[in-house]
Design a protein around this nucleic acid. Structure first.
Length: 479
RNA sequence: GGCCACGUGGCGGAGUGGUUACGCGCCGGUCUGCAAAACCGUUUACUCGGGUUCGAGUCCCGACGUGGCCUCCA
């Protein structure tokens, strides 16, 4: 069994071969911390968490390094800080915004059942590395200073790459040519740019803005451009060349294209990452998510209505590269599925093994939908026709189901713990329910069905769903 | 306008040219005081038009539709 991953650069699924099986390295673009993360932001976090778990399963927990950055220097952060804390000095306001937002982000992704990455570097702690990369680029004539900016020249890169096969061509990742980009360039090209396609590595800071000593002999203080922070952090924590780089599909251009350009030119490398992985976009109720449409939904808001696990399963039902339509109906379905699975596994401990069919689905470019199909099949109950039942049944199935689900980051707790959690979440008093159930049983025993139905309706109004069976009556929180 | 994805049953959603994906829902049944829950069973699909092939949801071409990117949006 081998892992195959779809690589955006080659546009095909390729067998994953790590550079060093004892040190598998993955970088994923994390949040810019200026506002609540929305459900679209949650997708890469969840998807690459599953990949992280899978890699740990394959190569051992100690042999996988996952780096996800926090970008805490950005124009949007500055704008938000000035808006939210007008009384404070800008730098102090910025610190408040980034600290609060990062904290909220951690709370959100923890609730979604995501493991913390091995390293979570911050852009502002890597200004030195950014400057060093910029110096290298200037020395190599890939970049030039102009009016206190430093600009990267894709034209220079391509001239060098034509003469030196060690370098990739600019535009290879996003499958664009410079000619196309020049044709599509906006009219308002900054006057200090030599070419319309040049992009900013470093720019001057206005008074009061965050600022650091500039590279390339520029006297004025400045701050980094957008793409350089990821090149710097990936280099620092994963080296010049590593295995996997991930993020949302929208980052392919310009962000990742520019990262590749910066890193490969600074270190004279043909490649930055061996596999480029990109998750698809998300729509809400069949509409593009946007603030103007009023369907901009944050993780924080969703968590008020749903356990994080429901959001997680709902995300994983669709293959990571396909678009997702995020709807209430799907969430309800996901919620029901989890109820059923928790009932299936009860309080068993996971198996030491992973079901091969389940694992094979994940190994096929993270086919979580196929894996979930298998999870439905692995059931302690005879839920499938006899011919397809395999050997499943009883505790073996329960333990297999538990271990497989846990590889997806699902069913992390016991069924008992979960149902207690659901009860306290719904604010239901178990003693009161027990008393009402006893009264109902008594009414049923004396065939006073008017009374027993009245109690049933009463419980339903409290949000309690009762379930009668031969063994007696149980209850759950109604959805 | 340029480039890139995607279009599967009532709904969600897999699918490596040839055999039932799977889940939800609907319907029927068992159970039940009646229900619910649970369990059993059944039901429908491959956007359109060409082409390649013994055979296409799967490959090729075109049309239509949806979405993304085109310098700071996951």
């Amino acid at each position: 069994m081998e892992l195959r991953l779809y690589d955006t650069l080659s546009r095909e699924k390729r067998t994953f071969v790590p550079l060093d099986a004892k040190d598998v390295r993955m970088y994923v673009c994390g949040p810019t911390v200026y506002d609540f993360a929305h459900i679209g932001n949650a997708r890469p976090v969840i998807v690459f968490d599953v990949l992280f778990r899978l890699l740990r399963h394959l190569y051992g927990e100690a042999h996988v390094k996952y780096v996800r950055n926090i970008t805490d220097v950005d124009d949007k952060i500055n704008d938000r800080a000035a808006r939210d804390f007008p009384g404070l000095p800008l730098n102090e306001a910025i610190r408040k915004v980034t600290e609060q937002t990062a904290k909220q982000f951690h709370a959100d992704v923890d609730a979604l059942g995501c493991l913390r990455p091995t390293v979570e570097p911050r852009a502002t702690e890597h200004i030195g590395e950014m400057r060093e990369i910029i110096e290298r680029l200037v020395a190599g004539r890939f970049a030039y200073p102009a009016e206190d900016h430093v600009l990267f020249s894709p034209q220079a890169m391509n001239a060098m790459s034509a003469a030196n096969s060690e370098l990739p061509r600019y535009g290879a990742l996003s499958k664009r040519s410079l000619d196309e980009m020049i044709a599509g360039a906006r009219v308002d090209v900054a006057p200090y740019k030599r070419d319309a396609t040049d992009f900013v590595l470093w720019k001057p800071s206005k008074p009061g803005e965050p600022s650091w000593p500039s590279p390339a002999g520029i006297a004025a203080q400045g701050r980094p451009g957008w793409h350089i922070e990821c090149s710097a952090m990936a280099w620092k924590h994963l080296g010049e060349h590593f295995d996997i780089h991930g993020g949302g599909i929208d980052l392919v251009f310009p962000h990742h294209e520019n990262e590749v350009a910066q890193t490969c030119c600074a270190f004279h490398r043909e490649r930055m990452a061996n596999y480029w992985m990109h998750n698809g976009f998300l729509q809400v109720e069949s509409e593009k998510m946007s603030k103007s449409l009023g369907n901009f939904v944050t993780i924080h808001e969703l968590l008020a209505d749903w356990p994080g696990e429901v959001l997680r399963l709902n995300m994983l039902k669709t293959h990571y590269r396909s678009p997702i339509d995020w709807t209430l109906k799907n969430l309800e379905e996901s919620s029901k599925t989890l109820d059923e699975w928790y009932r299936d596994v009860a309080d068993v401990e996971p198996s030491d093994d992973i079901d091969p069919d389940f694992l094979n689905s994940l190994l096929d470019d993270l086919n979580t939908a196929g894996a979930i199909k298998r999870l439905h099949e692995i059931s302690p109950v005879m839920r499938l026709s006899q011919s397809r039942l395999d050997d499943w049944g009883g505790e073996t199935a329960q333990r297999y189901k538990k271990s497989a689900a846990m590889l997806l980051g699902l069913l992390p707790q016991s069924a008992t713990a979960r149902s207690e959690q659901m009860r306290s979440r719904a604010g239901i008093d178990p003693a009161k329910v027990a008393a009402l159930l006893a009264a109902r049983s008594e009414a049923r025993a004396r065939k006073d069905f008017a009374e027993s139905d009245r109690i049933r309706d009463l419980l339903a109004a409290m949000g309690v769903a009762i379930k009668d069976s031969k063994e007696g009556t149980t209850w759950e929180v109604a959805r």
